[in-house]
């Protein structure tokens, strides 16, 4: 038996959230860097995504939304993955970044226009936080790329699986808000809580990718609180006492 048979590449952890952006902006269009047939393929995948998202956006209640999400999830997930993979294979990274940045700007303008009309402010706020988190995730992913191999490969793969799961779930709900703005479809009042909960998956994704980074660099952010032997004067003590008095005064209120 040839030893070459055993040279199958081992699985590597992946931390990607690089095609996030307005769905309709996923097609680079006028950049002239991809063939017409490829562009058509991307447009077709985008249309398939839109179709699934419009189905869930037509739900009136949280229960309906949950049921519908369960039904479209598989198709959505496959279409999303196919779109991400196609973009990653056919479009240069620099173009994807350029399109994502342009999309982010446009999405921010649309959010200002549609908040409180298509959805409540709470959804808009969670969406803004999500965009911030995605930016943070991309920064950490960049650091991971530079940092090299993890200290524990198995743990890294487990983290990468969790990351993929949470980003996919978060992406679905992010795409729901994008589709709502793109097609000017209001998100029904009773569905908005589910969308916000779904967007929270990005918080997990952000924590997971930081865990992955700590497998690559010495983590000084964990452990026993160091007490520094610095002067602690009357002012410091008064401020601390004041903080504690405030706390005691607030004790009857419900925190």
């Amino acid at each position: 038996m040839e030893s070459g048979l055993f040279e199958i590449p081992t699985r590597e952890a992946k931390y990607e959230a690089n095609t996030l952006g307005a769905i309709d902006a996923a097609v680079p269009g006028e950049t002239g860097v991809i063939k017409r047939t490829d562009e058509n393929l991307i447009r077709q995948l985008t249309r398939e995504l839109d179709k699934q998202l419009l189905v869930v956006l037509s739900c009136r209640t949280a229960d309906e939304f949950t049921k519908s999400r369960r039904e479209v999830w598989d198709k959505y997930f496959r279409a999303r993955r196919a779109l991400n993979d196609t973009l990653n294979l056919l479009v240069p990274k620099s173009v994807i970044r350029m399109v994502s940045l342009a999309a982010a700007e446009r999405v921010s303008e649309e959010l200002t226009r549609y908040r409180n009309s298509l959805f409540r402010d709470e959804v808009a706020q969670q969406f803004e936080f999500t965009s911030w988190l995605v930016n943070r995730i991309q920064c950490v992913a960049h650091d991971i790329e530079k940092a090299g191999s993890p200290s524990d490969k198995d743990a890294d793969i487990r983290l990468s699986d969790d990351f993929a799961l949470f980003t996919a779930w978060g992406q679905f709900h992010y795409d729901c808000v994008l589709a709502s703005m793109q097609f000017e479809r209001p998100i029904p009042e009773k569905v908005q809580g589910s969308i916000r909960d779904g967007l929270r998956a990005w918080v997990n994704a952000s924590a997971i990718i930081e865990e992955a980074l700590s497998l690559r660099i010495a983590d000084s952010q964990e452990g026993t609180v160091e007490v520094h032997d610095q002067p602690w004067d009357d002012e410091d003590q008064e401020l601390l006492d004041s903080s504690m008095r405030d706390l005691d005064a607030e004790s009857s209120a419900t925190l």
Binding site: S220, Q221, G223, V225, E226, V227, H228, D229, Q230, W232, D236, Q237, L240, M244, D248, A249, S251, S252, T254, L255
Partner: peptide, 29 residues
């Protein structure tokens, strides 16, 4: 609650505090 404070110092029994600092000085955390 402050052991010296016998007035208005009844704490809510359900409130816990999470240590977030990695460094501190003096009597605070």
């Amino acid at each position: 609650p402050d052991p010296q404070d016998t007035v208005g110092s009844e704490q809510k029994g359900d409130r816990i505090w999470l240590i977030v600092s990695l460094r501190s000085r003096g009597n605070g955390v």
